[in-house]
Design a protein around this nucleic acid. Structure first.
Lengths: 341, 341
DNA sequence: AATTTAAATTTGCGCGCGTAAATTTTTAGT
DNA sequence: ACTAAAAATTTACGCGCGCAAATTTAAATT
């Protein structure tokens, strides 16, 4: 590699034997220049390590090649996993993804929106905080930037919604639990941070009634995103007050279930399907960690790949001008039968 | 708020009654303009929602206000947690942090470096993949951009290193285990993705010898970042081949320990300190999940706050021109005694 | 070989802001 | 009130690239 430094596109145009506007086209969309030209540029790129100034590039471009990915809380492995998946799809499609976490804070979510707006991204993949989100701010943002909502829905906002079918989730795993033992009661947070929780409770109630059972919901106290601790503390309280009406507990999500399993352990209650076990516990989400709990957690898993693929491709299509009317895609979950229930 | 749109700084200068160069100063460093002037700008900002074009801003600025944060794998809760911590410190200090994950891939790590270079960040907080990192590329990068290395050290590269004292970690928890029961054997990956692992094994051996015990290391197969599964599968194999020489197992990290706990559960082996328990298991890292394993995992925890604070402040100081010779700061871990050992 | 079509080039303007130098205004100090 | 210092303003230029129009060159078609 030559060590002579290339300062700008003009200099690089000289050494590559291609005009600057052609280079500009190439860097924006390599396929848009003739193959022979592309080879000249590629050869020069190998020789001199020039990279265009991204700030100068994006200043005048109407449509940047960047995509924003926003999740409510990046330190939640579920969101980390789906963010990772989306990120790699963006890269594969030739975009520059930028990751954001709302840190579970509605005010910060609005700030992320502002930051994103000033980035002039080609599009945004946005998982809202849910209930707590500033609807008006989100609506204004969607009017300016092509935004695809995923994970949890906020009415008919943005290009489309892609997520899991929470009704199917809960009704499917409730069905499974009813068939294999006592009908479950439902363990949830009183004030859940996520709107999916409401759908899940409702679906549990519906499913139980349609199967001819009486639903029983245990709502525990606790604010914020420390679900495991809320599940653990709430689990202790529920046991102490004898709130579990059956020997089977369906949790609103896996993190809550993980906390409940810890509470069971601490109380000396054996969890599982065996004869020596007292109760069964199931979760919902297919959390990356659910395989490794003790006992391994029976859960209904998001189809991570399908959700992220559907979401990413819908956004890419919209960016490419294939506008379709708003639609909601809700993908089915897959029951993962493990030892806990 | 007035709805008349402000297109650029010139227009905003007119409506705020301040000159454009003064605005430029303000947006770069609000404290650098007189208080009366600042109030005029703040008032105008409330009235018109103008935000300077970040691309135009950064194009000619030598020193951007952005900071890059790079971790090996963002879907690992340990890195997610420390990244979150660092991110908020950057925001509090008035910087714009951007998060990157190397996805456990050395080639991708180099790409992240290239992306970062073109961002002209004020500084970078970089946690290398370790052994697998492209040392030369990293060195070149550090020559161009103020970079602080954290978590795992790569010789004397960058401004400084801040991380945990892996020798203290392992020797401290080994000491604890020896005092409270049988001396531990050491459970690790044969080809660890992280260089800290080597330090920990070495420290275990040293500690055991200094306490007058014979060290015993079990190295299990497995590539990549799926530590829990490697620990689980390796645990099964180790039990089947009777490789554990004592009833106490110190794992190289918490994720490995979590997988081992799962293997124990699957084998029907009771873990903990009670009379009815067969073995003790301990981890290292203070993984966010370690509180919720069954039994809760005894571990030695990183001082997340102190590591991220030290790292962030050292970088901020360097950015502000307070250059100090390279130094390595290794913070002690805190023993967290739980039920598993 | 002539024609059509596509791609690359030349030319030149503009984006929104940084920044430097010279000038004016404001503030602080005696 | 006068002076010196600090801050704000005016003026002017440049950054690196996007982009559009006109022109030239190369590729594809007949």
């Amino acid at each position: 590699m030559s060590d002579s430094k290339i300062r700008n596109m003009d200099e690089f145009a000289r050494v590559s034997g291609v005009s600057r506007p052609t280079l500009s086209k190439y860097f924006n969309e390599p396929e848009s220049v003739r193959q022979t030209t592309r080879r000249k540029i590629d050869a020069a790129l190998k020789k001199y390590d020039y990279r265009p100034n991204i700030y100068a590039m994006n200043q005048n471009r109407k449509l940047t090649k960047s995509i924003g990915i926003v999740v409510p809380l990046l330190s939640d492995p579920y969101f980390a996993e789906i963010a990772r998946n989306l990120e790699q799809r963006c890269i594969a499609a030739g975009y520059r993804p930028t990751l954001f976490s709302s840190h579970g804070d509605p005010a910060f979510e609005v700030e992320v929106l502002d930051t994103l707006r000033s980035m002039k991204p080609a599009g945004v993949l946005f998982a809202p905080l849910g209930r707590a989100s500033d609807r008006a701010a989100l609506e204004r943002f969607c009017a300016d930037v092509p935004t695809l909502i995923f994970d949890s829905s906020v009415d008919e906002i943005g290009l489309a919604f892609v997520g899991s079918d929470n009704f199917q989730f809960t009704s499917h795993i409730t069905d499974y639990l009813c068939r294999t033992g006592e009908a479950p009661c439902f363990f949830e947070m009183k004030t859940p941070a996520n709107p999916n929780a409401h759908r899940r409770r409702q679906s549990y109630v519906d499913a139980m009634q349609s199967f001819g059972f009486t639903p029983h919901v245990i709502s525990v106290d606790g604010e914020g995103w420390g679900f495991e601790e809320i599940g653990r503390v709430g689990g202790h309280a529920a046991f102490d007050q004898n709130q579990f009406s059956t020997n089977t507990i369906l949790c609103s999500n896996d993190r809550l279930a993980i906390g409940l399993l810890t509470a069971c352990y601490e109380k000396g209650i054996r969890v599982g399907r065996g004869a020596e076990c007292t109760i069964r516990v199931a979760g919902q989400d297919g959390h990356p960690h659910s395989r490794y709990t003790c006992p391994p957690l029976t859960t209904i898993s998001h189809n991570y790949d399908a959700v992220s693929q559907t979401a990413a491709e819908a956004l890419f299509a919209a960016i490419d001008g294939h506008v379709t009317p708003w639609q909601s895609t809700r993908l089915e979950g897959k029951l993962i039968m493990r030892a806990s229930a």
